[in-house]
Amino acid sequence: MAVATHDNAHADPTAHAWERVRINRLGLWLFLFSDAGLFALFAASRFYLSGTARDPHLNQALGLAITSLLLLSSLTAYRAETAFVHGNTARGRAMLLATIVMGLMFAGGVAFEWATAEFPVAELYGTAFYSMTGMHAFHVITGILFLAVVWARSGDGHFSGGPKVWPITATVMYWHFVDVVWVFFYPTLYLLK
């Protein structure tokens, strides 16, 4: 129990650090939950305004490609965290880098789609499509920034072992969250008819 360990915390630095991680973890989950509400309201608005109708001009191949890419980046993010947890800094860094690269490719894919899409933003479907992908892409970009910061700082074994891995875990959780949002947005925007 948190209450019982409170006094121990100062005696044992490792226990104190774990206590901190536990507090941070709940905070992060609440933040992600709250953020998910924002996405959910945009998705709900899409159904409210235009039902399940979608524009026939969507680039389905590109959609499937960027979706796969983001899913794959979730795997590399998982592998990065697992490697850091087990003290394997070299693999962890490589996997972080792979995640960043795939994230950038995803953002590039969205940008390409925006540049080539044939439906205007003023249409109902365009309203949903551009605002939802735009908000998601904004989260992808912030995620890439966080990943870049932890990647740059992970060189000297900064994040190795037990509670010290938390910054990596937090960043990777954020990245998975971005993926979860896309898990719902992809069928909402591309697959329903």
């Binding site: 499937l64 899913l71 979730s74 998982y78 592998r79 697992t82 947890v85 992809y186 069928p187 697959l191």
Partner: peptide, 23 residues
């Protein structure tokens, strides 16, 4: 632990492809 990651990814990939085919 890494194997768990691959297994989960495999399931996710299969589900995604299934979604696409169904759609």
């Amino acid at each position: 632990d890494q194997r768990t990651g691959f297994t989960v990814f495999l399931i996710l990939a299969v589900l995604t492809i299934a979604e696409y085919i169904v759609a």
